[in-house]
Design a binder for these strands. Structure first.
Lengths: 148, 148
DNA sequence: TTATATGCAAACGCTTTGCATCACG
DNA sequence: CGTGATGCAAAGCGTTTGCATATAA
């Protein structure tokens, strides 16, 4: 969970205009504790009393992703979602496969492993994508009662 | 690169019918040295003289993915692609970001790291997705000549 | 023979784009 | 003011589905 203002000020810092639509999107993003889709943002903006056009939602999310404020995540289902980030160095997200809530983990020490892969494959590895999925603490305890 | 017959026999082993369309898809998959999209398979089947319907391509790829013969990969661009697998235990793919060629790497020893993430986050991590991107040896040496 | 797989074409859902208008700075 | 941002609606793309037909077993 992130403060919407963090996003807004980051936009400002990047020389972008602070518009009503971007405020609405930022709030929607901040309101989500886990991953969310473009559609989620759209709906949230409507409920928040400041409806934003579908195209603008996509454009805003793209912008924010470019600034590293959010990150695109491909769920195992193939769905496209986003998660909020603390603008930071390298990190990964752990997404709850039940409730979608996500947490960030810092660098988990992947580099030595990648080094080894480079040696064995001859590829120069420039980037990677690691997504972790599982059950968060709450869903794990609730699992007995409400098994979805 | 994989022999198309490996795929065919795996299909047979799973009690599925060996049809012309599936042969064609298997060949197209086997012919690709790297990742490929559904569209690639469709085109390849046409060129191979055994055109397969678009829907059938998707259905076949889905089937093969279910059998672990191929795996779906989401490229950083958001594109959906597939790569052939040796039906095996846990492994990852390294995809060349220039030519798309991919190689498999076995278990790279991620488990201890995941263990640590579990402890720090409280999530029980059930699955993960690690995709590695970079330049393969050939593209790296060719990079000076044809920098794409 | 008979269930399974295929092909077609239409439906679908998500995402992007063109363009006139709006509003932040 | 002037440019960047927005909204709408339509186009675009990849993917899925319904249904009649063909075919492997």
């Amino acid at each position: 969970m992130v403060d919407g203002n963090v996003i807004i000020s980051a936009l400002g810092g990047a020389g972008l205009r602070i518009t009503g639509a971007r405020r609405a999107v930022s709030e929607a993003v901040a309101a989500h504790d886990g991953h969310f889709t473009a559609e989620d943002v759209l709906v949230a903006s409507r409920r928040g009393g400041h409806p934003v056009g579908r195209a603008t939602v996509f454009r805003s999310l793209e912008t924010m992703a470019g600034l590293g404020l959010i990150e695109r995540v491909d769920l195992p289902s193939g769905e496209h979602a986003y998660v909020a980030c603390q603008p930071a160095a390298h990190h990964h997200h752990v997404v709850c496969s039940r409730c979608g809530r996500s947490v960030e983990v810092g660098d988990i020490g992947l580099d030595p492993l990648l080094e080894r892969v480079q040696e064995s494959t001859g590829y120069r590895i420039d980037s990677h994508r690691l997504e972790l999925f599982g059950l968060c603490e709450e869903c794990r305890s609730g699992a007995r009662i409400a098994s979805a």
